[in-house]
Design a protein around this nucleic acid. Sequence first.
DNA 1: GATGAATGAGCGTTCATTCAT
DNA 2: CATGAATGAACGCTCATTCAT
Lengths: 218, 218, 218, 218
Amino acid sequence: MPTLIEARSKPRWERRKDARPQELLAAALDLFVERGYAATRLDEVAARAGVSKGTLYLYFENKEELFKAVVRENMVPPLADAEELINNFEGRSSDLLRLCIDGWWQRIGATKLSGISKLMMAESGNFPDVARFYHEEVVSRGGALLSRIIERGVALDEFRPVDTAMATRVIIAPMLMLTMWRHSLHACHLDPIDPDAFLDCLFDLLTRGFETPSGRST
Amino acid sequence: MPTLIEARSKPRWERRKDARPQELLAAALDLFVERGYAATRLDEVAARAGVSKGTLYLYFENKEELFKAVVRENMVPPLADAEELINNFEGRSSDLLRLCIDGWWQRIGATKLSGISKLMMAESGNFPDVARFYHEEVVSRGGALLSRIIERGVALDEFRPVDTAMATRVIIAPMLMLTMWRHSLHACHLDPIDPDAFLDCLFDLLTRGFETPSGRST
Amino acid sequence: MPTLIEARSKPRWERRKDARPQELLAAALDLFVERGYAATRLDEVAARAGVSKGTLYLYFENKEELFKAVVRENMVPPLADAEELINNFEGRSSDLLRLCIDGWWQRIGATKLSGISKLMMAESGNFPDVARFYHEEVVSRGGALLSRIIERGVALDEFRPVDTAMATRVIIAPMLMLTMWRHSLHACHLDPIDPDAFLDCLFDLLTRGFETPSGRST
Amino acid sequence: MPTLIEARSKPRWERRKDARPQELLAAALDLFVERGYAATRLDEVAARAGVSKGTLYLYFENKEELFKAVVRENMVPPLADAEELINNFEGRSSDLLRLCIDGWWQRIGATKLSGISKLMMAESGNFPDVARFYHEEVVSRGGALLSRIIERGVALDEFRPVDTAMATRVIIAPMLMLTMWRHSLHACHLDPIDPDAFLDCLFDLLTRGFETPSGRST
DNA sequence: GATGAATGAGCGTTCATTCAT
DNA sequence: CATGAATGAACGCTCATTCAT
């Protein structure tokens, strides 16, 4: 295990140095989520990480690369895990779908990471390079992942044959909706929504439509 | 009589003057939707309206007031119309609901005005004063409007007794979702969604849940 | 008397027209005194005079000419009157001096006109052309006026032979001081000063020094 | 030990850093005195200090704070010294008064610092926050200082019992007057006044009035 | 590696002045 | 004569980025 070796083989101050990027990424995540991409100031990121502004530039070329690193560090691993899960999963496709949605909720939707989704929806138009990156690394991978589950279900005759692209969107829609609500209506002082109840309700409604009559009877 | 002549054919520059605020509001709407609130530059608004930066300040006190005027000019009238519609409507509540949703789609959702909703979700946290204004003028009025329809349906025994606040949200959710998609996934170059099909589908699913057994049998 | 003829020989609306510059000058005086030269905005002057900004430029070439007109209209006539008074005065020089000082106090010092003196002391450095004009039209004429009185007193053996320039300053000093106080310490919320007592006191102190022994014994 | 070396000979840029605020304050003082508060441009301040506009904001939050710093740096210390002088002084109150006035003349009146007094008299009406600060830090402290001297003189039976507030003003008046003259009439190209002679003269006249008959005989 | 001082382009806003009507 | 819409230069202030130490 390289991580263990790495942890033991370096003197303490070196490990401190290794921690720098993580501290910066954590601070950057916080601020990107709080303020959005454009409104996040790099000196505030540095200050929150306890380093100087110049230090930030030792680890990240510029604001855009910092943001990409935040995405790679936080959004991509859950996707990779989900991909591995799909590759190795044996069981009913609806259970697999539920696993993935719950995993997304626990690791992204319910955490501040969901703020990244909101941010990208809001500002992708102003930062095309960032948008392209995010689309390649997150949006298309996440979409492909869901599509594979649906196609798996159809292939195993667990799901009715459906338009995969449309079905993918119908699944993602309530997830993103929740994300938006948690980050903006919250600010509008609306009474909070119960995410679990909401997810249950919509998940039930929407996925039920996919099931084959035989699958539903089970 | 000069007054009569003046009343019938104003001098060119005076007619321009009358049109200026509209031209500026149109340019501002375009840019706010394209770029968001913070990223919209007032000199670009002026340039798109064909005037200098200083001219904009003849008509609007500052950026915030310009934005408020855009909202008042574009978002509020449809709400007022809908309120009047509700006051005078005689017929089934589900028809009234459909009328309002279709009206929203035609006058807001399908137009660039939906970009204002997106913008507010994205940036309300950074501009509390604007957020407060938007919430008072649009969010709460729109919510109240839907709530009145639902309560009307319940009172007339057309709808099952439901939690009005939750039902309001369940109705608004897919509308906002569409809005977000039209403005951000579009930028992500995803294949476009068919809004009518999407709205039909979700409207059907969600409103069916409200109907009383007697209402459904009709 | 031309003024009387002028007033009767013109139709009413013509007299209104003639009043325009006066209304503008009055508004300009008010605002120059309230805010200073640089901080006075011409559209506010126009608004206070009840005309449009453009109209102001029909009567005054620019801000500087407007200010000069204010000075000519308000500061110069009292000086001219004083000059005439000196030319025709027969009596004791100390009485003449007292007359001039009291006249200054009543027509300038105690009125908002004193704000013009303050303004020039404060801003002459930033507006050399205005300063030059003011110096020629007001400062040097006023100084010359006082100097003539002193020289008259000396020539008639009423005053001791003194350094005229120095004496002039010693007389002007408390007058300006009062002016400054009325316009700035007042704003600092200091307890107000009694100008009459102050003037009496200093006038007494300072002028007594000029008198010849024979004059004093009277 | 690098810390020791560092303590003894800082790298050049660090020594510059320490000097920056002073350089900026010096440039700001110059320009505030030359042009007044409103007419002083911050980029000109920066340019005169040999730095860019942005650098100024590293050291001072905004124009107002820059001005306050100029006052604190320059006007307040002499006041503090005078307060200490009064606390420890043993001797005749008229000598103490003379010491304070001479100290003021040497450290403020005769220097460009007197331009700050002039500036405040001229512009306090337009900048109420600055005026409040200046009044608290300078005007009231300076007044209190003089009042204490007068009260000391009265308590020790060196001065006649007088209205302290009025006496304070009578002392301050010629000082401010000189200040105004040095900064505005100077600009008007009047022949310069001899400040020492002027101060002597007025000091003599005014303070003589305070002395008790016994004090005068000394 | 780490610092933080320095930069400068750019934004929102103001206002004296012009000019077509 | 009177208007007021239009201008544009200039100000205070911000912040991503650079670089000497």
